[in-house]
Design a protein around this nucleic acid. Sequence first.
DNA 1: GAGTGGTCTAGACCACTGT
DNA 2: CAGTGGTCTAGACCACTCC
Lengths: 262, 262
Amino acid sequence: MAKAYERIADELRAEIRAGQLNPGDQLPAESALVERFGKSHVTIREALRVLQTEGLIDKQHGRGSFVRRPRTRVQRTNSRHQWEKGRAREPEEQRLQTGATERDTGLEVNDLVFHASYREIKASKELADAMGVPEGTVLLERTYRTRYSAERAPFSLVTSYLVRERIESNPDLLDETKEPWPGGTWNQLHTVGIEIDRVEERVTARPPTAEEAEELDLPPGTSVLILRKTSYDTEGRVADVSDVTLPGDRTELLFTTHLERW
Amino acid sequence: MAKAYERIADELRAEIRAGQLNPGDQLPAESALVERFGKSHVTIREALRVLQTEGLIDKQHGRGSFVRRPRTRVQRTNSRHQWEKGRAREPEEQRLQTGATERDTGLEVNDLVFHASYREIKASKELADAMGVPEGTVLLERTYRTRYSAERAPFSLVTSYLVRERIESNPDLLDETKEPWPGGTWNQLHTVGIEIDRVEERVTARPPTAEEAEELDLPPGTSVLILRKTSYDTEGRVADVSDVTLPGDRTELLFTTHLERW
DNA sequence: GAGTGGTCTAGACCACTGT
DNA sequence: CAGTGGTCTAGACCACTCC
């Protein structure tokens, strides 16, 4: 005999897939399900939890459980890199116009709330390896949050690392009050003579940690995309390492690869 | 007053992060935790579930709960596309040597168990849009599973779609018993005069469905990467659409983007 | 205040793992 | 068989939402 909570989850899942319950629809109250299936409250909740973990339903305390509606996605492409590189050498008036987030989301500069903070750290083993420097090298760690002014959760959590020694010839680059910097990191690097040649992006996925769920306002039953972006300069050295956490339910990464012709 | 299960989860999480409990270590039995925290079995289990959902612990029925050990990753790069394109024109002896999965995993051909099945379908609206053909166009749907012979779960779930009309001039391409085809899809397309010019890959993440968790042998507290790969031929038409489901806890996608020099 | 989901108890019994 | 986690009950009470 199958477990009761699985049978119940299967039955409700089938109703959702068959379209008896549509996105946005409210499920019967837990007490109603207790009666309908003749099982205890805890068992019913276990069944609903299965569906929640699958991202099929959304439980709201005091309101009810609802069939989840797919969210619109933010697209982040790798063609943005060429665009950002070009922008890094533009005159300041042009650089002020728009940033990468505006490009991804289609929103205006004024719709966005930006926050940055800097601090200096010594490279851990893991970071030192990623950046190709000795352990303990002084790094500038910069954390960024950008959000839509109408929402409370940022689009992503970004932490970027630069080697302090390679940028300190321009003291403005060590000063967080200069943010947001028109033209972004690659313009900043341009001011100290660094040109980016290629970008490597490593992508994995996992459930959010408690802190990430809190900060990105993620409900249970969602995942995060973890992206580590490594930028190499024209001499093959690592210029920047950025760790980005993106909500999986509203982000799509698009990578285009061009091939040599036969 | 904080919820009991959260306090308990916080305390255990802190012990794991502090290194009092190391990867692979067994947690105290649930009955022991009932005594230690003076809470009921159900409450203790709720706390452990929080940690499991975060991917921090791994519960094993009849054995115990353990601090999860990070798994070794399979890396899938976008440089594989250029490699695959080159391989598509090589002589058969060379094409027989190794495939893309061997390249990603570092395993030998003999370590891998391969399975393919074909069927013909009519394009749904969603698929027709993705392939740039009218709804209802006849497509060849091909599903692939490749696994390491020592493991029971495949590395990924792959479904590929081709427009039947554009490949039927070579009847071998409609015959699943010809799989595994040396040189893969791009060699198959080469036999009907199609050259691939660029590849677009769209990546998102979400919790696995029940079926995916079953087939990929994924424990609760993991995510899947969803990758849709669209291959364009030299005339800009869609040659192939492939949907790939990858286990998030053992897959890393690596995309390299080269930029134009200043 | 009525109706919803969330937390919790104290206990029973089941299912799996390893000796 | 002993020890582990998994399922389940019948009930109490709490916390949130909305009218």
